[in-house]
């Protein structure tokens, strides 16, 4: 089996963690974009590194051109990328060109009877799909879930290629998004807010509670996407962040499947909602039917007296 990991050097390192369960008998190569130092390249646990120095991975066109150049010379069973938005474009295009199947947001892989079976979530998180793809295939891995792993391979050969850099998409302007360094993905406790909050100002209650219990604040899609009361770093769900805290406290969130899709891996889920019929209660460990405007201040009062 031959596997090609492609991306920025940090992404390639992350991908070694994803493919670890299938890497023992595989030949693993890397296609690296940008100009990493020789030491950095040699620290990757792959047997061959191909460096496309003049490819800018923030352009799907560059990723596609570099991949096509490599795939034109060598055949790989699996071409593996991190599923960033740009890479999803590039991966889909490369797969179509080589007539290959692809999967997006793979969350795991294992060997079954000698062939890799990839795992992903479907049906808005209500089902887990086990997928087998004829090779060659393009695999796009859910970002941020894997850490670099030593697969036992050492870089034997470093090859350099260059691309023409012809692009179909012209970037007119690029604005960075506001980032406050919130990482709900890593949080042990999350206080998550939904449309049950009547105004942006009221969210300060949730932040105070979060501070008191050492939690991060998360939110449902409408809070970040429609109302824009919080930045997208807080957004949890199918189209947002997937979280795995010890404790997830959903306040004023109804529990639609697209939200639940992001919180499946939480250890304990607590829901506060004033509607006893809210679906979130069926998907929680503990539910309290209460008005959040009554509940949160009372809870904070209790916690601060206990703390003293």
């Amino acid at each position: 089996m031959k596997i090609l990991l492609a991306g920025r050097i940090s992404e390639v390192a992350e991908l070694t963690g994803f493919i670890a369960p299938i890497s023992s008998t595989a030949d693993i190569h890397a296609l690296i974009f940008g100009k990493p130092g020789e030491d950095e390249i040699r620290s990757l646990s792959v047997s061959k590194a191909i460096v496309a120095e003049n490819a800018d991975p923030s352009y799907a066109d560059d990723v596609v051109e570099a991949l096509k150049a490599v795939l034109g010379k060598e055949v790989y069973d699996y071409i593996v990328l991190v599923a960033t938005r740009i890479n999803k474009e590039a991966g889909a295009r490369v797969a179509q060109t080589i007539g290959a199947p692809a999967i997006t947001e793979a969350i795991g892989v294992r060997l079954e009877d000698g062939s890799p079976v990839f795992i992903r979530s479907v049906m808005a998180g209500k089902a887990i799909s086990k997928e087998t793809l004829s090779s060659p295939a393009v695999i796009m891995v859910a970002p941020g879930r894997n850490k670099p792993v030593d697969t036992g391979k050492r870089v034997g050969e470093i090859q350099r290629i260059s691309i023409s850099g012809k692009r179909s998409v012209e970037i007119i302007e690029r604005k960075g998004k506001e980032r406050k360094g919130v990482r709900v993905e890593d949080a042990e406790i999350i206080v998550s807010v939904g449309r049950g909050f009547k105004s942006k100002e009221d969210l300060s209650m949730a932040f105070k509670l979060a501070e008191l219990i050492g939690a991060q604040v998360g939110c449902s899609r409408p809070i970040a996407a429609d109302l824009k009361w919080l930045s997208e770093e807080h957004w949890i769900g199918l189209s947002g962040k997937k979280v795995r805290p010890k404790l997830y406290i959903a306040i004023g969130i109804s529990g639609q499947p697209q939200h639940l899709a992001g919180i499946m891996d939480s250890k304990i889920i607590v829901a506060i909602n004033k509607d006893p019929g809210a679906p979130i209660f069926k998907y929680s460990d503990y539910g309290v039917v209460e008005d959040l405007y009554v509940f949160i201040p009372k809870l904070m009062e209790k916690l601060s007296t206990r703390q003293k």
Binding site: K126, S129, E131, S284, Y286
Partner: peptide, 15 residues
């Protein structure tokens, strides 16, 4: 070229 089996995620919450 692409086969899959999807299984329902069981809710294992205490409720």
């Amino acid at each position: 070229i692409h086969e899959f089996v999807a299984e329902g995620v069981k809710i294992q919450r205490k409720g």
